[in-house]
Design a protein around this nucleic acid. Sequence first.
DNA 1: GTCTATACAAAGATAGAC
DNA 2: GTCTATCTTTGTATAGAC
Lengths: 203, 203
Amino acid sequence: MAKKQSQKDLTTEEKIKEAASKVFQKKGFSGTRTRDIAEEAGLNLALINYYFRSKQKLFEIIMAEKLSSFFMDFIPLLLSEDSSPEEKVRLVSENYINLLLENPDLPVFVMSAVHNNPKHFANIVKGAELIQDAPLVAQLKKINPNMKFEHFFMNLMALCIFPFIIRPAISLISKPIRKNFETLMQERIELIPMWMQQMVKQK
Amino acid sequence: MAKKQSQKDLTTEEKIKEAASKVFQKKGFSGTRTRDIAEEAGLNLALINYYFRSKQKLFEIIMAEKLSSFFMDFIPLLLSEDSSPEEKVRLVSENYINLLLENPDLPVFVMSAVHNNPKHFANIVKGAELIQDAPLVAQLKKINPNMKFEHFFMNLMALCIFPFIIRPAISLISKPIRKNFETLMQERIELIPMWMQQMVKQK
DNA sequence: GTCTATACAAAGATAGAC
DNA sequence: GTCTATCTTTGTATAGAC
C-alpha cells in the first residue's frame, strides 16, 4: 500500500527519478547524459526510455515535482488565520532561506526549466488563486488599504530567492565584502521581515 | 575602419553571432542545434566551427557580452557625484526595467548561463569593486550609518530583475489579478524607489 | 582567407529478443 | 520488465574548391 519504501527497495521508476534528480542538479540538463543517469541508478540505459518517454520528459516530471513543493510549501504559512502579517513574513523568510541554503542550486535549476516550458507552472496558478483570498491579504489591507498585494508577494519572493540566483557572483565578490554567502543570508532572515513591514506601511 | 556596418553588410562572424544570439534566446542552449544557427544566419554549418571553436565557445562569447552590458550599464549611474541617492535609484529602476521589458528573456538566459559557468562573472567583479567606493555608498552611510550596502544593491537588483525571472508564472496568474506584466512593471518603476528609500532609513 | 560538402563520433531513442 | 543491438540526430572535424 505504502509507496514509500526503504532505501534500496525502490521501484525501478523511482530509482531512475532519484538518480536523474541527482545528476541533473549537478550537471544541468544538457550536461547530463542519459547514460550517466542509467549508471547512477545501476540500471540499463533503455529503461529510462521505457519508463519515461525521453530525457526531456523525465526532466519535466522531476521539475514539476520540485517546483510544486517549492511554491506550495509556503502557502499554508500564508493561509494561517491566527498569526500576524509580521509573523507570517518572518516564517516564510526563515523557512525559505533555510530550505534554499540546503539546496542553493534549486532556484536557477527550477527557473530555467520553467522558462523553457512554462506549463510547469500550471499547478502554481491554483496556489496563486488560494492566496488571493488568504487572511493575510485582508490583514494587509487593514494596515494599508492601498497595499498592492501582487507587489507584496513578488517582493517577498524576490528578496528571499534572488540572492541564490546571483550566488555565483556574490561568491566572487565576497572577498571584497568579506562575508560569505551563508552569513549574508542569515542576516536577511532578520532583515526581510523589517523591510517588508516598511513596504506595507508606505503610501 | 568602423566595425559597425549597415544591416545586411555584416561580417560572417557577426552574422553568426547575431543568429546565434537570436536562436539561443529562443530555444536555450541545449534546444539549439548548430544547424539552426547556420540556417538562421544563411550560412554553411561548418562556418560556425571555423569562426568559433564549438557551440559552447560561441555561447560563452555571446553570454560574456550580454552579461557585461547587463551589469556594467548601470555602474556609471551609481558612480555619478551630483545626484541624490533617490535620483540614482530611480534612474537605475527606470533604465533597467525598460531595458528588460524589451528583452524579457534576458535575465533567465543570462542567469542559467552563468550558473553553468560562473567564470562569466569575472568582468563583473571589477564592477562590484568600483561600486564599493561609489559616492552612493558614502551618501547612504550619511543617511544611515548602519546601512548594509551589500543588501542595498542586492535588493535593488532583486526588485527590478526578479519579476522577469518569474514572468511565466505572472502571465498565468495575471488573469486573476487582472493586470498584464507590463503594467505591473510600470508601477514598479515608481514603487521601487519608494521602497528602497524606506529600507535605507530603517534601523 | 572563406566557404562547401562530407565524414565521423557521441548520445538519445527504439525494436525486438528474452 | 529488462536487456542487447541498432538507428537517428547532432556536435565536431577535415578535405578540398574558390
